[in-house]
Every structure is written in C-alpha cells, then in structure tokens.
C-alpha cells in the first residue's frame, strides 16, 4: 500500500534517522543543541502524522509534548545551562568522524535487516516505522559511547528516547499510558540530569566525564 500516507510517514521517520546522523558529527555544543531541537521537531511532525494516519487523536498530545518540551524547552534550558557553566565555547574533539559514521551506517543496516525480517507479516507502515525507530535508538547509543562531554551524552540519550517514542507511536493503538509515561520520565530524568550537572560543576572545574574516571575505588 504505497499511498501518500505511507510515503509521508516514511519520509518523516527517515528524516529522523538522518538528523540522528547529523547529531553524530556536531563538535560544538550550541550546534549540537540546535540539531537536537531539529531532531525533536521532526519527531513531533512524525508523531502528528501518525496521529492523523491512525486516526488516533491522543497521539497529538504526544506530538505536542515533543514539540513544546523537547524541541523548545529542553534546548533553551540546556543553552542557558552551558552558558552558566561557561563551556559554551568548548569544542569537543569527536574521535574519528569517518569511522563513527561508518559504524552508524552499519547499525542502520543491522536494524533494517533485523526488523524487516522479523516483522514480515506486519502492516508495512508499522514495519518501516519500527525499523527506523530501532536505527534511531542504536545511533543514540553510538553517540553516548563516542562522546566524552556530559552534555553530549545527555543529548545522545534524549535522541535515543526520541527513537523510543517513534516506536511507541508506530505501534498501532498502543495505550496512552506509555506515551505519557515516556514523556514524563524524560521530564524526571531531565531534572535529575540538571541536578547532576550542577553538582558536578560544584566539585570539579570541568563537565568532562574523563575527569570523573580518576576514581576506581580499588587503588590503594
């Protein structure tokens, strides 16, 4: 069923994967936050389209949360936070953009192979959505692994959560409980992160997690 509905959903979910790739190579924090805002914006569009396609009005709420909270509020707050912490000029050395991108491509291929094969009998709209969602999740994980800066790790985690929201909305008729809880847990998680950032700043002069790794508890 290659209708317009399907094409647009495909386009939006695919763009989300593309923006995930863009996140991978940003080395300035401001640029990273802007791309993350774009990521959340694409997610909001995609969820809204799913709401329309599935005729499920409650998904508009999820889309609105993604737009207001993740695309606007969080980037703004993080902007202010990194200014306050005085790290906004820092350029992060992203190790090996080339290998990272290649690895990312490999992960996307992996998720396509796995998901498309597994969901052979499902509705094509659902299949594609789920495959893209898994790609976004894996790319988010990759970003968390390759980054050293606390802020970029958190952005990686949030992009991973976006992938989960995409998966949850793609699964037809999944109860609202989960969507709200996802949004809500991000809120809580974010507060925790915020507290942590300030606490880390209080104790150290850098928000680089490499500074945290000095302690292992076993050294005499």
């Amino acid at each position: 069923m290659h209708s317009l509905t399907f094409d647009i959903a495909h386009l939006l979910a695919g763009s989300l994967v593309l923006v995930s790739f863009m996140l991978l190579y940003q080395d300035r924090l401001y640029a990273l936050l802007n791309v993350y805002a774009l990521h959340a914006f694409v997610l909001a569009l995609s969820v809204a389209w799913q709401a329309y396609a599935q005729d499920a009005p409650h998904l508009y709420i999820t889309a609105a949360i993604a737009l207001m909270f993740k695309a606007i509020l969080i980037p703004v707050v993080l902007h202010r936070m990194i200014v306050k912490l005085g790290i906004h000029r820092e350029v992060e050395t992203v190790v090996g953009i080339g290998p990272t991108m290649l690895l990312g491509i490999g992960l996307v291929a992996l998720s396509m192979v796995v998901m498309l094969r597994v969901t052979a009998e499902a509705d094509p709209l659902v299949r594609e959505d789920l495959a893209f969602a898994l790609s976004v999740v894996l790319l988010g994980l990759l970003m968390m692994v390759t980054r050293q800066n606390v802020v970029s790790q958190v952005v990686g985690f949030m992009s991973l959560e976006n992938g989960l929201v995409l998966a949850a909305t793609g699964a037809k008729g999944m109860p609202l409980v989960v969507e709200i809880s996802v949004a809500f847990s991000i809120l809580i998680a974010f507060i925790v992160i915020g507290i942590f950032l300030f606490r880390i700043r209080e104790r150290f002069d850098s928000v680089d997690v490499a500074a945290l790794d000095s302690y292992r508890g076993e050294r005499e």
């Binding site: 999740v137 989960l164 998966a167 949850a168 989960v178 925790v192």
Partner: peptide, 19 residues
Amino acid sequence: WKYFILGSVGIALALFGTI
C-alpha cells in the same frame, strides 16, 4: 552518574522490548 547512564540505557532497551 555511571548508574544513571547505564540504568537509563537499560531501561530504554527494556521499553523497546516492551513495545
């Protein structure tokens, strides 16, 4: 911090499994 990051990733994977 370590617990939070690893725990969140674990929780995220579990949600994907739940979906």
